[in-house]
Design a binder for these strands. Structure first.
Length: 749
RNA sequence: UCGGGAGUAGGCGAAUGGUAAGCCGCUUGACUUUGAAUCAAGAAAUUGAAGGUUCGAUCCCUUCCUCCCGAACCA
C-alpha cells in the first residue's frame, strides 16, 4: 500500500510534477550558537529526507549573521550531528557569512530602488514608532532621505564610520501593516564585533529576515522549510525576493510544527543554562536531549531517525510522549545487541550442595533474534543474584525466589532457598540454597515448575563494573528549568558485577543486561580495568507497573463546558435585509444571516436573482461556493459573473445536472470563466437518472463486494455511502445520487 | 484588542465530499529459561461547539470557543 505523505512531500511532488523546479534543493540552516538537539534531528530528517526521497540535495548552512553569539565549536557539533545521523550535505558546508558581499550588493540594489533607507532613530524610538498590534506605526523622518544620501551613509556604515546603534538599514514597506514584521523591518545593523569566520572585515551584519531568503536564493534552494514561529516572517521572505525581481526560480518558505517532548526541555537557552550551571556534565551529558547526549547515552542514529519518521510532520503544535522515543531505541536494539548478565545490586548465594565448577554454554541472542553467537558462563557454589530477585515475605504475584518458591538461574539450574542469613541490622547478607542437579537448562528432568528465570554471576570470575543508571532529567511533564530537575536522574552504581565474557571478549559495545535494560560502554570513561556502562533505556516492565497502578485513580474526568460567545448584532440595514430574505424569499436563517451581513455577497446574490427567480438555490450557491472564492479574491477578480451563476442554478433546477456536478462545474468556472452550459456540454456532464442505466452498475458492485453487502445487511448503515460512492465513481460522477440512493436501498433489502 | 496559524481516541497522526488509517500507550490471552521480545484479540473518537449546504460532511459555508505565534538592532 502507498504510505500517506506528509504535507511537505505533497507540495514537493506537486512542484516537481508541474515543472516548477527540475531538482529539489533543501537546506538545514542552524545558527551555530548551541549544540543541536532532537528537535534539530527532526528538521534534519525532514530536509535531508526530502532531498533524498526526491533525488535532490540538501545544503548544510550555518546561519552565522550574529557575531556576538556564534562560535566555531558549535559548527563542529552541528557537522558531527548531521554525519552521525547518516546524512551527507551537498559538497561543502555553507555559511551565510560567505554571502556577506553579495548580500551587501542586494542591499545597495534595494536602496537604489528606494525600497530601503538608512534610519538614524535610536533603538527605543524605533520601537515606539512601530506602533502596536492595534494601532498603526509612524514612519521615521529619516525615511525621506534621498537615494544618494542613503547610499553614502550605508557605505560609511560598512566602512565602520559609525558606532554601534547609530544607524540601521531598513526596508521601506508599510508602517501600518497588520503584520508587525512588515513595519519597515531592519535589514542591517552596525556591530563592531569579531566574527568567528569573517573576522573584522565587517562592521555591519545582515538581519535574519534579509539574509535568510537571499541565502536560500543564492544556493538555489527550492523549498525553504522552517518551523511555525517563522510564519509571520514569510511575508518579508517573499517581499525581499519579489522586490529585487530576481531571476526565477525562487525558493518558497513552508512551516511545520517544531518537536516538543514531555519531561524534556528543548530551548537552546535553557540547555545552555544547564551546561553553564553545571547541572549536567556538558552538552553531551547522557541525560541531555542533544544529539551528542543521545549518542553518548547509547542511542543509535537509526532509532532517532525512526522516531522522527513515526511522529510525523504537521502544522499543529503538539507534545510527543517520551515513551515513543523510548520505544524507538528498544525496538532498534532488540534486534541488534547481545544479551548478557549483570547483577546491579548483588546478593550472595551459597549453593550448599554444589562442589567444584563448570562452564555453561549460553547464546548471546534469544531464539527470536536471528543472530548467532555464544559464550561460556562459569558456574560454582558461590554466585550473586540481584537483591530485587529475592523476597523473604513476598507480595502477592511475586514470581522470583522466596523461602517457599524456587527459581531458575538463567541458562543453569533451579535453586531452592534453605536459609536466610542476616546481620545485626536485620539486613539480609547471604542466602544458603540448594540446587537441583537434574534441572540444568536444556536437560531438565526434574519436573520442578518455576515461575521465573533470573540473572546471576559466578562470584570468583565476575568482573566489577560501574553502572550509571540514567532516568529522565526532569520530574515534571512540562519542565520550566532547574527547579524541575529529577534528583534521581543519575544513580552511579560502583559495585555491579558482570559476567566475564563482556569484558574479555567484548562482543559489542551495546548490550541488553537481561531483565534490566539496554546499556552502552561509555565511549570516553570506559577502561578495561575500570569498565563503565551507561543505561540507555530500561526494558518494558509490566511487573513494577502493575504494582504501582493497583490503586486505581478515580475517574475525575469532567467534560469541559463549552462557552459560546455572542455574535455581534446586526445594524438596521442588515436587519432589514435579513427580514426580507427570510420572510419574503424564504431563505433559512443561517443563509439569510450570512448574506445580510456581507454587502458584496448580497449584491452579487441580487444580481444573480435578477436573471433567474430561484431565490433559495441561488442563495445556497452564493453563500457556500461564491463566498469561498471571495475569501481569497476581490469581487473584480472573479472569473465568473452573477448571470453565469444563475445559469448554473437553472441547470440544477431543471435537473440537467446534480448538485454534485454543479460544484464541479463551479470549480471550472472560477478557474477560467467558461460558461456553465459550455462546460457541461464539452465534458458531457449531463446526469444519468434512468434506473435502467444505473441498475446494472449497482448489481455489479453488489456482486463485487459481498463482504460489505453482508455488513450493510447486518446493520452497518454507513456503508450506504460506500455503495453510492462506488456507483458515482463508475459513472464518472454523472449518476443522479438521489436515484442511486433509492435504488441501492431497494436492491439491498 | 488586531493579524497569522492550529484543534481528529490518553499521546502523535492519516483520511479533500462516499467503510474515521497507522504508530506509541493501555487491557486480555497464547508462547516463553528475560514479568522482555513475539503472536493473537480487545477497549478506546457523537473529528473543539452550534448551525447551514448536500442523497451523503473530518473535509465546503457561517458564527462561536480554546490553544500557539507576532509589537528583539535574536534566529
Amino acid at each position: 500500500m502507498n504510505k500517506s505523505k506528509d504535507f511537505l512531500r505533497r507540495i514537493v511532488e506537486e512542484d516537481l510534477n508541474s515543472g516548477k523546479y527540475q531538482e529539489i534543493v533543501t537546506r538545514f540552516p542552524p545558527e551555530p550558537n548551541g549544540f543541536p538537539h532532537i528537535g534539530h534531528a527532526k528538521s534534519i530528517s525532514i530536509n535531508f529526507g526530502i532531498a533524498r526521497d526526491y533525488k535532490g540535495h540538501c545544503n548544510l548552512r550555518m546561519d552565522d549573521t550574529n557575531p556576538t553569539k556564534e562560535d566555531t565549536k558549535y559548527v563542529e557539533a552541528l557537522k558531527n550531528a548531521v554525519q552521525w545521523l547518516g546524512f551527507e550535505w551537498n559538497k561543502r558546508v555553507h555559511f551565510t557569512s560567505d554571502y556577506f558581499p553579495k548580500l551587501y550588493d542586494y542591499a545597495v540594489e534595494l536602496i537604489k530602488m528606494d525600497k530601503a533607507y538608512v534610519d538614524s532613530l535610536s533603538e527605543d524610538e524605533i520601537r515606539q514608532y512601530r506602533g502596536t498590534v492595534t494601532t498603526a506605526g509612524e514612519r521615521s523622518k529619516y525615511a525621506k532621505r534621498s537615494v544618494e544620501e542613503n547610499l553614502n551613509l550605508f557605505e560609511q556604515m560598512k566602512n565602520g564610520k559609525f558606532k554601534d546603534g547609530e544607524h540601521v538599514l531598513r526596508a521601506k514597506i508599510d508602517m501600518s501593516a497588520s503584520n508587525m514584521k512588515m513595519r519597515d523591518p531592519l535589514l542591517y545593523r552596525i556591530r563592531h564585533a569579531h566574527h568567528f569566520r569573517a573576522g573584522d572585515a565587517w562592521s555591519i551584519y545582515p538581519m535574519y529576515d534579509f539574509a535568510h531568503c537571499l541565502s536560500d536564493y543564492i544556493e538555489g534552494v527550492t523549498h525553504s522549510i522552517c518551523t511555525l514561529e517563522f510564519e509571520n516572517n514569510r511575508d518579508i521572505y517573499d517581499w525581499v525576493l519579489d522586490t529585487l525581481k530576481l531571476n526565477p526560480p525562487r525558493p518558497y518558505q513552508y512551516e511545520f510544527a517544531r518537536l516538543n517532548i514531555n519531561y524534556t526541555v528543548m530551548s537552546k537557552r535553557k540547555l545552555l543554562e544547564l551546561v553553564e550551571g553545571g547541572v549536567v556534565s556538558g552538552w553531551d551529558d547522557p541525560r541531555m536531549p542533544t544529539i551528542a547526549g543521545y549518542k553518548r547515552r547509547g542511542y543509535t542514529p537509526e532509532s532517532i531517525l525512526n522516531f522522527c519518521e513515526q511522529i510525523g510532520i504537521a502544522k499543529a503544535n503538539s507534545m510527543v510522549d517520551v515513551s515513543q522515543l523510548e520505544f524507538s531505541i528498544r525496538d532498534d536494539l532488540n534486534q541488534k545487541v547481545p544479551r548478557v548478565m549483570c547483577v546491579i545490586n548483588p546478593l550472595k548465594i551459597t549453593i550448599v550442595n554444589y562442589e567444584g565448577s563448570e562452564e555453561i554454554d549460553a547464546s548471546y541472542y534469544p531464539h527470536d533474534v536471528p543472530k548467532e553467537g555464544e559464550r561460556k558462563l562459569p558456574f560454582s557454589k558461590e554466585i550473586y543474584i540481584d537483591r530485587d530477585d529475592f523476597m523473604e515475605n513476598p507480595v502477592k504475584g511475586y514470581f522470583r525466589l522466596t523461602p517457599m518458591q524456587s527459581v531458575r538461574l538463567k541458562y543453569a539450574y533451579i535453586i531452592t532457598c534453605k536459609e536466610v542469613i542476616k546481620d545485626t541490622n536485620d539486613t539480609i547478607i547471604e542466602i544458603k540454597a540448594e540446587y537441583h542437579p537434574n534441572s540444568k537448562s536444556g536437560a531438565d528432568t526434574s519436573g520442578i515448575k518455576v515461575k521465573s528465570a533470573i540473572q546471576w554471576v559466578e562470584a570468583k570470575t565476575a568482573k566489577k563494573v560501574e553502572v550509571r543508571l540514567y532516568d529522565r532529567l526532569f520530574k515534571d511533564e512540562i519542565p520550566q528549568g532547574v527547579e524541575n530537575i529529577n534528583p534521581e536522574s543519575l544513580k552511579i552504581i560502583k559495585n555491579a558485577l558482570i559476567e566475564p565474557a563482556v569484558i574479555t571478549d567484548k562482543p559489542d559495545v551495546r548490550f541488553q543486561f537481561e531483565r534490566e535494560g539496554y546499556f552502552y560502554a561509555d565511549p570516553i570513561l570506559y577502561k578495561d580495568t575500570a569498565p563503565v556502562f551507561n543505561k540507555i533505556v530500561g526494558l518494558k516492565d509490566s511487573w513494577t507497573k502493575k504494582k504501582k497502578t493497583d490503586k486505581k485513580p478515580a475517574n475525575t474526568q469532567t467534560k469541559k463546558v463549552q462557552i459560546d460567545g455572542e455574535a455581534t448584532p446586526m445594524n438596521a440595514d442588515e436587519q432589514a435585509l435579513f427580514d426580507k430574505y427570510s420572510s419574503e424569499l424564504k431563505l433559512n436563517n443561517e443563509v439569510a444571516n450570512t448574506l445580510a451581513r456581507d454587502k458584496t455577497l448580497s449584491n452579487f446574490y441580487e444580481d444573480a436573482l435578477s436573471t433567474l427567480n430561484s431565490p433559495v438555490n441561488i442563495a445556497n450557491l452564493v453563500v457556500n461556493e461564491v463566498a469561498r472564492e471571495l475569501k481569497q479574491k476581490e469581487i473584480s477578480e472573479l472569473k465568473f459573473s452573477a448571470k453565469q451563476i444563475s445559469e448554473l442554478v437553472k441547470m440544477v433546477d431543471d435537473e440537467i445536472i446534480s448538485t454534485k456536478i454543479a460544484k464541479q462545474v463551479f470549480v471550472e468556472m472560477s478557474k477560467n470563466g467558461e460558461n456553465p452550459k459550455q462546460i457541461v456540454q464539452t465534458k458531457g456532464l449531463v446526469q444519468i437518472s434512468d434506473p435502467a442505466k444505473i441498475l446494472p452498475i449497482i448489481d455489479k458492485i453488489i456482486a463485487n463486494n459481498p463482504d460489505n453487502v453482508q455488513k450493510f445487511k447486518a446493520g452497518n448503515s454507513k456503508l450506504l455511502g460506500f455503495f453510492v460512492g462506488q456507483v458515482l465513481k463508475n459513472t464518472g460522477g454523472k449518476a443522479n445520487p438521489k436515484v442511486v440512493n433509492e435504488l441501492i436501498i431497494k436492491q439491498l433489502q
